[in-house]
Amino acid sequence: MKNLRLKSARAALDMSQQQLADAVGVSRQTINAIEKGDYNPTIKLCIAICRALGKTLDELFWE
């Protein structure tokens, strides 16, 4: 399932996928896969993404 909340949180900060990827230490393709719903990140990566975007886990990843 697509993660549109992640995409909009990233867009709200005017961040590209590459910039977010660099901030959390993964490849751009991994961020793309998470946004498209093709990959479920580990909790460690979820926390890193939340920190980079200034959001909580619930706001970005809870369904």
Binding site: S27, T30, A33, P41, T42, K44, L45
Partner: peptide, 8 residues
Amino acid sequence: KQPYDERQ
């Protein structure tokens, strides 16, 4: 240093 991320 992680050469590859978790998905990779």
